[in-house]
Simulated scan of single mutants.
Amino acid sequence: MRREATRDEATVMAMHNVFLDPAGTTPFGLAVIVLAPTGVTYEHQCEGLMTSTRTVEGFLVPVPSNDYDPEANEAFDAEGALLSFFHKEFRGNPPPPEQWTPGQVESLAKLVSRVPFWSTPTGSAPSELLHLTLDMERVAEITEAWVPVKTPYGPGILVFQNCD
């Protein structure tokens, strides 16, 4: 039998905050924070050398940094490609997304579409390897190390090491 949380327990559950790599010394690879009412917020340093922090509520899903592309018959380093994109395009100073060129948004969308993400449904349905999609409805949120994406579980944020 499921027990309802008391008001005090609910208050405690709603107050959990996790700062991803607070010292900035332990890169964690790629992860997606799927937006959901979990009572847990994740805080992450982003925005290149401006080093702002952003917070979102949800659940964290580690994603592989490497993927194999059978069409090209080669491995793809998604994390390295994302880090290189932001370094090459913005040198640690990403402007607001409204100042990006259409080509820059398209390049980021292509990179994001190569990031593997496993869908693991409940029940007897098999897991399925899918890929993320840049969430074009939330382009205004994009910055280095904080990229809005669509996942099989709903909207999320792709996070990775900030360049600072």
Score class of each variant (00 low, 15 high):
residue 3 R to W: 03
residue 4 E to H: 09
residue 4 E to M: 12
residue 6 T to K: 04
residue 6 T to M: 00
residue 6 T to A: 10
residue 7 R to H: 09
residue 8 D to N: 08
residue 11 T to Q: 10
residue 16 H to F: 07
residue 17 N to T: 13
residue 20 L to F: 05
residue 22 P to E: 09
residue 23 A to D: 14
residue 24 G to V: 03
residue 26 T to Y: 12
residue 28 F to Y: 09
residue 31 A to L: 04
residue 31 A to V: 02
residue 32 V to T: 10
residue 33 I to V: 14
residue 34 V to C: 00
residue 34 V to L: 00
residue 35 L to R: 15
residue 37 P to C: 03
residue 39 G to N: 12
residue 39 G to V: 06
residue 40 V to T: 15
residue 41 T to D: 12
residue 41 T to Y: 11
residue 42 Y to W: 14
residue 44 H to P: 07
residue 44 H to L: 13
residue 50 M to F: 07
residue 50 M to S: 15
residue 51 T to Q: 12
residue 52 S to E: 11
residue 52 S to F: 01
residue 54 R to S: 01
residue 55 T to C: 14
residue 57 E to H: 06
residue 58 G to H: 13
residue 60 L to P: 05
residue 61 V to P: 08
residue 61 V to Y: 11
residue 64 P to L: 06
residue 65 S to P: 08
residue 66 N to T: 14
residue 67 D to F: 04
residue 69 D to P: 06
residue 74 E to I: 00
residue 77 D to R: 09
residue 77 D to Y: 15
residue 79 E to T: 07
residue 80 G to Q: 08
residue 80 G to W: 09
residue 83 L to H: 14
residue 84 S to E: 15
residue 85 F to S: 08
residue 90 F to Q: 06
residue 90 F to C: 08
residue 93 N to P: 01
residue 101 T to G: 11
residue 105 V to N: 02
residue 108 L to K: 03
residue 109 A to T: 00
residue 109 A to R: 04
residue 111 L to Q: 09
residue 111 L to N: 12
residue 115 V to A: 02
residue 116 P to A: 03
residue 116 P to M: 04
residue 117 F to N: 07
residue 121 P to M: 10
residue 122 T to W: 01
residue 123 G to H: 05
residue 125 A to E: 13
residue 130 L to V: 08
residue 131 H to T: 11
residue 132 L to N: 02
residue 133 T to L: 02
residue 137 E to R: 08
residue 138 R to T: 12
residue 139 V to A: 03
residue 143 T to N: 06
residue 143 T to F: 04
residue 144 E to G: 00
residue 144 E to W: 01
residue 145 A to M: 10
residue 145 A to N: 14
residue 146 W to M: 05
residue 147 V to S: 13
residue 149 V to D: 04
residue 150 K to Q: 03
residue 154 G to T: 13
residue 155 P to Q: 11
residue 158 L to D: 05
residue 159 V to G: 08
residue 159 V to Q: 05
residue 161 Q to L: 00
residue 161 Q to H: 13
residue 162 N to S: 07
residue 163 C to L: 05
residue 163 C to A: 15
